[in-house]
Simulated scan of single mutants.
Amino acid sequence: MADKLTQLQDALDNQLTLMYAAMNYIQTRQPYSAIPGQPNQAPDPAPLPTPDTVAAPQSAVSQLTNGDTSEQQPNGPSQPPPQPAEEVAADGRPRTPPPERPEVFNRAMRDMARDLVLQEQQIEILINHLPGLGNSEESQVMRMRELEAELREVEAERARAEEEKERMVDMLGEVIGKVKRIP
């Protein structure tokens, strides 16, 4: 398991990815708005898909985590999912997808907002579990000195145990050398 700072960085990266995806979706798929007193010039929206022609929609978080909702991978994959190649219009500019119907767009906006809030809550949890929060710099320095002293003691104990082991191996070698094989 990664340390808390790596988990926090991964969570922040996913938050930025979700934000970018939401902004891109809003920019490219928002439905046309009617201007009061003006004729509606919006193109006819695409027909709504039937349930048997479309698989169940996935939220942005489930796409980022490849559908894995276990606690083993809370921050999703290390790389974003592959994006389809953009189509190009006859004039060479990228073709944008048609606007969504308002009810589809609003449902997607709610899903994206929920995903962003959940990711933000995960970031808050990670921040609250960072070591050192609530301690002054002096207390942290003092704690580091205590840990260094404890580390020196443990290292000295390890060195003594290593010497004891070497002495025991030498003694065992002498005992084995003195034992004669009985024919």
Rank of each mutant, 00 (worst) to 15 (best):
M1D: 08
K4I: 14
L5R: 05
L8W: 04
L8S: 08
Q9L: 06
Q9A: 14
D10W: 02
A11I: 01
A11W: 01
L12S: 02
L12E: 05
N14G: 03
N14Q: 11
T17P: 01
Y20P: 00
A22Q: 15
A22I: 04
M23I: 13
Y25F: 15
I26R: 14
T28Y: 09
Q30T: 09
Q30E: 07
Y32N: 12
Y32W: 14
S33R: 14
G37M: 05
G37F: 08
Q38P: 00
Q41Y: 15
A42S: 15
D44P: 11
A46H: 06
L48T: 12
L48N: 10
L48C: 08
L48E: 09
L48I: 11
P49C: 06
P51N: 07
P51V: 07
D52Y: 06
D52E: 14
V54D: 03
V54W: 02
A55K: 14
A56S: 14
A56M: 15
A60Y: 05
V61G: 03
S62W: 02
S62L: 06
S62H: 06
Q63T: 05
T65A: 08
T65L: 12
T65S: 12
D68L: 06
T69K: 07
T69A: 11
T69P: 01
T69C: 00
S70Q: 07
P74A: 08
P74T: 07
N75P: 03
S78C: 03
P81M: 02
P82E: 04
A85D: 05
A90D: 15
G92T: 07
P94A: 12
P98F: 09
P98S: 13
E100R: 08
R101V: 10
P102F: 05
E103N: 10
V104Q: 11
F105A: 05
N106Q: 13
N106F: 09
N106T: 12
A108Y: 01
D111L: 01
M112T: 01
R114P: 07
L116G: 12
L118W: 03
L118F: 06
E120P: 00
Q121H: 03
I125Y: 02
I125D: 06
I125V: 09
I125T: 13
N128E: 11
N128Y: 05
L130D: 08
L130W: 03
L130F: 07
P131M: 07
G132A: 03
L133W: 00
G134P: 00
G134W: 02
N135W: 00
S136I: 02
E137V: 04
S139T: 12
Q140C: 04
V141R: 09
M142T: 11
M144W: 09
E146G: 04
E148H: 07
E148Q: 12
E148T: 13
A149Y: 09
A149T: 12
E150I: 07
R152N: 09
E153M: 08
E153V: 11
A156C: 00
A159E: 05
A161M: 10
A161E: 08
R167C: 00
V169Q: 14
V169K: 15
D170N: 10
D170Y: 11
M171I: 06
M171A: 14
L172D: 08
G173R: 15
E174S: 11
E174G: 09
V175D: 09
I176N: 13
I176S: 12
G177P: 02
G177K: 15
G177R: 15
V179L: 14
V179T: 15
V179I: 15
K180Y: 07
R181N: 10
I182V: 13
I182N: 03
